[in-house]
Simulated scan of single mutants.
Amino acid sequence: MDRLPNPAWLRSFESAARHLNFTTTAQELGLTQTAVSLHIRSLEAELGQKLFTRNARRLELTELGQSYSLTVRRALSDIALSTNSLFGPASRQTLTIRAAISTATYWVAAELSDFSARHPDIPVRLVSHIWNDSGKPGDVDVELRLGYGDWPGVRSEKLTDERLVPVCRAGDGSPILNNGPLIHILGYEDNWARYFQANGTAPPDQPPRFSVDTTVAALQLVMAGAGYATILERFAKNAIRQGAPIAIAGPAIPFAQSHYLVSAQRAAQPTAAAGLFCAWLRDRLATDAAD
Results as ranks from 00 to 15, higher is better:
P245W: 03
G153I: 07
L186P: 03
A35S: 14
R57K: 03
T83R: 09
L38A: 12
Q265S: 09
T160A: 00
D114F: 01
D283E: 14
L20A: 00
R145N: 04
I40N: 01
V154E: 04
R194F: 05
N238V: 04
G149T: 03
A224T: 04
R11H: 10
F277I: 06
F87D: 05
A290G: 08
L51V: 11
A217N: 15
Q206M: 11
S102Q: 04
D139I: 04
A279H: 04
A16C: 13
G225Q: 03
W9I: 02
P251V: 13
R41S: 15
R209L: 12
L59F: 06
A236Y: 10
Y188Q: 07
N238S: 14
K136H: 11
P245M: 01
R118H: 11
A229P: 13
E63N: 12
P204L: 02
L86W: 09
A226Q: 13
R57F: 02
T105F: 04
R266V: 01
W131R: 14
A35H: 13
Q197G: 05
T287C: 10
Q66F: 09
A256C: 09
T287W: 09
L159Y: 01
A289V: 08
A80N: 12
W151M: 12
S258L: 04
A272W: 05
W192L: 14
Q269A: 08
H19M: 05
A289Y: 05
D291Q: 11
A272E: 09
R125K: 14
S42L: 11
I40M: 07
A75I: 10
N179Q: 10
A218M: 08
S37A: 10
Y188R: 06
A26I: 10
A267Q: 06
L70V: 15
T53V: 14
L281N: 02
L232R: 15
L232C: 07
L64G: 10
A247I: 14
A224V: 02
T62D: 05
A16E: 01
Y148V: 06
R125F: 10
Y148Q: 08
E28T: 12
I101Y: 02
F235M: 11
I240V: 15
A170L: 15
L146T: 11
G147F: 01
F115A: 09
Q66N: 11
V216L: 15
E63L: 14
I231D: 08
